[in-house]
Design a protein around this nucleic acid. Structure first.
Length: 278
DNA sequence: AAGGTAACCTGACTGC
DNA sequence: TGCAGTCAGGTTACCT
């Protein structure tokens, strides 16, 4: 599921209900997620207030005085606010209860999601947490003012990999997954198979702007829902209706009417227009 | 060092 | 109706 917009929508949905509340208790389904649930850290956090709920890359961050609880939604995860007496659903795996009867429940059918504890280090910032979360979270946030065509061009130097794959690595810019990589490359007119180093600075300038635009629009629409995703209040995202190429194989390009093509790169589907994207 | 592949999981859908 | 095969928003360990 979730790329940056979906995680952002989740964070914005949870924050008003959770910010400032005291963490009261937690429960785990016992089913293994990507990483073992940090039991000792969760136990220590009981009684501590949550200062904020935010996002870094595709990670949801619950900020405590001692550090951050980082939740990743994997391919199929979603986090929802629930009342204590609501029945348990299939694939609910983690319950975080807060004072005042607020409960955050992580549901994840495929269990590619994770929960990690990041102890606070001196002068830590949310931006700096990226590297500690993994290489895929180490790049710049798309909304960072340093995310320019010059920056992308410089980062892509010497990289022979396809630009789409390079974009999705998360080492240059974070949060761009399969859907939004396809969409942003289409809007920038860049062929997804082009070597990253062979994209011009001018094209990268356009790409930097289209990434921001696609992300902004997707957040405003509540994200994309393919099958699993829903926001903290359970509503699905509407951005799927705005997809220009993703999931539109064989359908006419919205610019030139040429049928959209689908290829496989790195075992992932890529959708593009071979006329508009060069 | 960079590039490719497999693995982690469940569920929905397609075609026979 | 049932079964096999394919595909799905991500990440990373391990090869070459």
């Amino acid at each position: 599921m979730p790329e940056l917009p979906e995680v952002e929508v989740t964070a914005r949905g949870l924050a008003p209900a959770v910010r400032g509340r005291v963490f009261a208790s937690w429960r785990h389904s016992g089913q293994r997620l990507r990483h073992a649930v940090p039991r000792a850290a969760l136990d220590r956090l009981v009684g501590e207030p949550v200062h904020d709920v935010s996002r870094r890359a595709k990670y949801l961050l619950f900020e405590f005085s001692a550090g951050w609880l980082a939740v990743h939604l994997g391919m199929s995860g979603s986090c929802r606010l629930m009342l204590p007496d609501e029945p348990r659903r299939l694939h609910d795996h983690l319950w975080l209860a807060f004072q005042g009867a607020t409960q955050v429940v992580l549901n994840d059918p495929r269990r590619f999601g994770s929960v990690q504890w990041l102890p606070r280090r001196a002068a830590d910032t949310v931006q700096a947490l990226g590297g500690r979360l993994g290489v895929s979270a180490s790049g710049l946030e798309p909304f960072d003012s340093c995310m320019t065509g010059v920056y992308l061009h410089q980062q892509a130097r010497g990289r022979q990999v396809a630009v789409k794959q390079w974009l999705m690595e998360g080492t240059t810019v974070v949060g761009v997954g399969n859907i939004y990589a396809c969409e942003a490359l289409f809007l920038a007119g860049i062929h997804p198979g082009r070597a990253a180093s062979r994209v011009s600075e001018q094209r990268f300038e356009l790409l930097a702007r289209t990434i921001v635009r696609v992300m902004t629009d997707a957040i405003a629409a509540g994200g994309s829902t393919l099958r699993d995703f829903s926001a903290a209040d359970g509503t699905p995202g509407r951005y799927g209706q705005a997809h220009q190429v993703y999931g539109r194989e064989g359908m006419p390009c919205l610019i030139c009417a040429t049928p959209i093509r689908r290829i496989v790169q790195q075992q992932r589907s890529t959708f593009y227009c071979h006329v508009c994207q060069r």
